[in-house]
Amino acid sequence: MTKFIIRRFLSLIPTMFVIITLSFFLIRFAPGGPFSSEKKLPEAVLQNILKKYHMDESMPMQYLRYFNDVLHGDFGPSYKYKESTVNELIAQSFPNSIVLGSVALALAVFAGIGVGITSALRQNRWQDYLAMSLAVIGISVPLFVIGPVLQLAFSMQLKWLPVSGWYGRKWPLTLILPALTLSFPYFAYIARLSRASILEVLRSDYVRTARAKGLKESAVVLKHVLKGALLPVVSYLGPAFSGIITGSIVVESVFVVPGVGRIFVQSALNRDYTLIMGEVIVYSLILVVMNFAVDIVYGFLDPRISYK
């Protein structure tokens, strides 16, 4: 097991290398550049700027220079936000998105699994119909509708929660509505996923054996059903976590959260090479580490997977 973890961990290095290399060149081959927009700069000024950022060098040279900086943990200066480095911009925005995303995902997982179990055990009864209608709403209604509806209800009408904002006097109350909104589609998906797989396991031969042994239905569900049935949810958590962190652009604008979503979009429009790269790298790092963690957890849950 330890061996497997180490090997699996080492395999993250080539993955990250490929991601960094590919995105470095892809971004540069996209039309336009960080200084080609708006009004034309005088040729001499442009040359100076390019020199300052080493962009007059050959592409392989720039790549090596950038790679070396990244290895030292330096993502370089932002081309557009001249007063900040990429490291600073990421440090300001990513943690907010991670807090928001983690809370939203935790909500989605607990509520989703709970609702999934309830509707599987009450299949085709009103609890099931109610839960699954809610799930369809969660999957089909866009966040920019759910968000304002929640604001209207809980902030404007009931006045329980702040309309928007982040750090400040109202923290952590400001977290609740955006997290709720963001969690909704994930909650819906997890509820449907766990319902379907619980129903499948409930029909399996080994659950019939457990019942024929005289176990109580609650023991059958807790001991024999849940472990197998929740494996698909566990494997979904990796992509869900990374998705929920960057997928929050809409929620960030509706609730004015200083997260990574808005900067991400802006940097792409601005061709702010270093900022894009920094975000891509941090984002992919989260993605591969989460998938790594999911693999390990999965291995502990499913004894049929052997690590040699």
Partner: peptide, 22 residues
């Protein structure tokens, strides 16, 4: 339930799927 598995127990056809793999 006090009879199942105690006074009357069962063996099923497919041993590959009748035991809980987890």
């Amino acid at each position: 339930r006090k009879i199942r598995g105690n006074k009357i127990s069962m063996i099923f056809q497919d041993p590959m799927t009748s035991l809980n793999p987890f």
